[in-house]
Amino acid sequence: MTRVVCIHGVGQQHAGERQLASAWHTALADGLLRAGSSLALTPDDVRCVFFGDLFRRPGRTLAVGDPPLDASDVEAGFETELLLALWQEAARTDPAVLPPDARTLARTPQSVQRALNALSRSRFFAGVALRALVLDLKQVRAYLCDTAVRDAVQARVAAAVDERTRVVVAHSLGSVVAYEALCAHPRWPVRALVTAGSPLGIRNLVFDRLRTGVHGRPGDWPGGVEQWTNLADEGDVVALVKDLRPLFGERVRCHVVHNGARAHDATRYLNTAEAGRAVSDGCRVPG
């Protein structure tokens, strides 16, 4: 029986559901303390929906690490456009990143390499290997553009939610997964949605591609949810649009938090008072 269902984002193909659930449970417990909540969440109350294995290459003798990807592997269209959008946002928030110019935004192979070079110097992507960044782009494209991948991820969310679930907590691409799942299942007992480091506000690449059911449209309220809290760090490049209210309505409670050098880190979002308050309020809403 699960009170809080958590949904991770990209780059978790080498993790697992128990590993993530342990880290997220601890962070949420700290967030509840910061919020002064008396709510007690046991490890059994928290379940992580894991789909990183869908992006992990099958092993072979002596195989290690991510695929040896480079700039030439960034596909034209969605992947390149997302990469350039991240570059623009990184340049806006980090003085160490030179901004792209009009010529660069022509989306040539040279612009892809320049974007990767620029992002490698940013605080946000410090320590992220180039091949890992390229792989992250491909994971986002796979979920948003490949129906089979999307359906497989959604099936795992549906299997995790039960009659006791009151809160869904979602990070990064997981917030897209959560929003679509809640739109598709308006009768779920989930009463609160907490999104962190979300790309939901990126218009052409993410928002306009959202699936909300046969009669729905992007921007619809997510199912039977009564409370939606969105957390964004000013330096979080993935959360390119910090305020989701213009797209999803004034009911979304939007907060800017400060995660330090690891602006996009899920646990730093979840151990905040804002996250703790949202989870506590959601668990106390009658089902």
Rank of each mutant, 00 (worst) to 15 (best):
Q227A: 12
L200I: 00
T147K: 04
H258D: 13
G276D: 10
S198N: 04
N117V: 11
E81R: 15
R56L: 12
L205S: 07
L144M: 14
P100Q: 05
A96I: 07
H255Q: 13
L116C: 14
F124G: 08
V97F: 03
V176L: 04
V4S: 06
A273T: 07
A85P: 08
L84K: 09
W221M: 04
R47M: 00
G287A: 15
V177D: 01
E17V: 09
P186I: 00
A96F: 03
D70K: 05
A15H: 07
A23S: 08
F124R: 09
P95W: 01
A142M: 10
G249I: 13
R150A: 08
I7K: 11
S38L: 10
E79I: 04
T61V: 03
R187T: 15
H215V: 06
P246M: 04
R277N: 12
F51E: 05
A142F: 10
L182R: 06
S198W: 12
A91F: 00
A40T: 15
G11R: 02
L247Y: 02
F248M: 03
D53N: 02
V225N: 00
V112Y: 10
L83R: 11
V149K: 07
V149W: 00
W228Q: 02
R245D: 12
D162K: 11
P68H: 05
R114K: 01
V279E: 06
A160C: 00
P95R: 00
G197L: 08
G249H: 14
L28T: 09
L69Y: 12
H25V: 06
V285D: 06
R203S: 10
L200N: 11
R123L: 01
Q154C: 06
A184I: 00
R203T: 09
M1I: 02
V241E: 15
E81S: 02
L32Y: 14
L28M: 13
A71I: 04
G235R: 08
G52A: 07
N117H: 12
N117A: 13
N230G: 08
G16P: 02
W228N: 01
V112C: 08
W228R: 04
L33D: 13
S172I: 09
V190I: 04
V161I: 15
D236Y: 09
E234S: 11
Q110D: 13
V237F: 06
A21T: 04
T104Q: 14
A159N: 07
G52R: 05
F78L: 12
R277A: 15
V176A: 02
L193T: 10
R164E: 11
L205P: 02
A63M: 09
R191P: 05
